[in-house]
Amino acid sequence: MQSGPSPFKRLKRHLLATPLDGLMSVLLLALVGWVATTTLHWLFVDADWQVVSQNLPLYAFGSYPPHQRWRPCLWIALLIGLTLLTLLGPRRGWIRKALPLVWIAMVPCGVVLLAGGLGLLPIPSHAWGGLTLTLLLTACSGALALPLGILLALGRQTSLIVIQRSCSVYIDVMRAVPLIAVLFFGQLLIPLFLPMHLEVNRVLRAVLAFALFAAAYIAEDVRGGLQAIPRTQREAAAVLGLSPKQIIQLVVLPQALRTALPALTNQAVGLLQNTSLMAILGLVELLGISRSLLANPDFIGRYLEVYVWLAGVYWLVCTAMALLARHLEHQLSPTRFATSKR
């Protein structure tokens, strides 16, 4: 865009080239203007945001006991802090090296903070809710689904025909069934497979079913990454005396996951959005808490306000995830995967 015509002239050329173009442009501009003013008018004049402003703690924590709210608060603060540190923090040094481990540690950390134990007052899972529960569901099911998906993808590649077939069948079946069906089955079936006295709570059942479902999709993404690695890479590793397990762990997987990263990012964002389906199972995560608020006579009919607010919150979290993913991609790529010159 160097030294072209002035912006005004360019605009004129693009929008008003012929009379018909001109007419279209004017109509479109009018439409855009009308939509914008209506929206702004609704946002700032018509809408009654009390349904949001009076219930912020509910959106954040659900019915978590007020005197214990510092716990989910702390967890979310840690997540935000870690996100900022990852995106803006130092590019090198031990902090950068420790980051992946800290991120992984956030999953058990969240579970302990919310559930209690280790000296914290136990809080039953039906009291968890809101954004905290949405994030916890995403984090836990993602943390289970990723290793499971990798194992499925590797299993699909082995020469052991029984394992290979079972993995293929599992992946195909899971991908053929809608998530909501898997979630309902999970609520009913998972207790059957566990010993009687082990009462599995609803949140854990939902997480397990969700992870089992997501793993099938992750497996397909990882398989794509595995297929992108030339056979010669395995040969070069084998020739150095590395064992089959070392070849997978040190040579194949790091490259395959790097290649699959953009697809895995999509899965992660999808995971977060799909946690909203758990509202149907009676979990009061972000969507669930909103629905129960709308059932409250004080806020009757405030659908638009609530759903616009929800959209904003989901958008914010998804954007943060996308930024983190892009950062990770950048970290793993810059010069290292430059195409080899010959």
């Binding site: 890479q233 070069a236 150095l240 590395l242 040190l250 040579v251 290292r336 995967f337 080899s340």
Partner: peptide, 20 residues
């Protein structure tokens, strides 16, 4: 050549001595 593209030159060379 078949070098490992995700490892530095030094890591390419030390991988087998360290692991094997």
């Amino acid at each position: 050549f078949n070098l490992f593209p995700h490892l530095s030159i030094l890591d390419n060379i030390t991988l087998a001595p360290i692991r094997v």
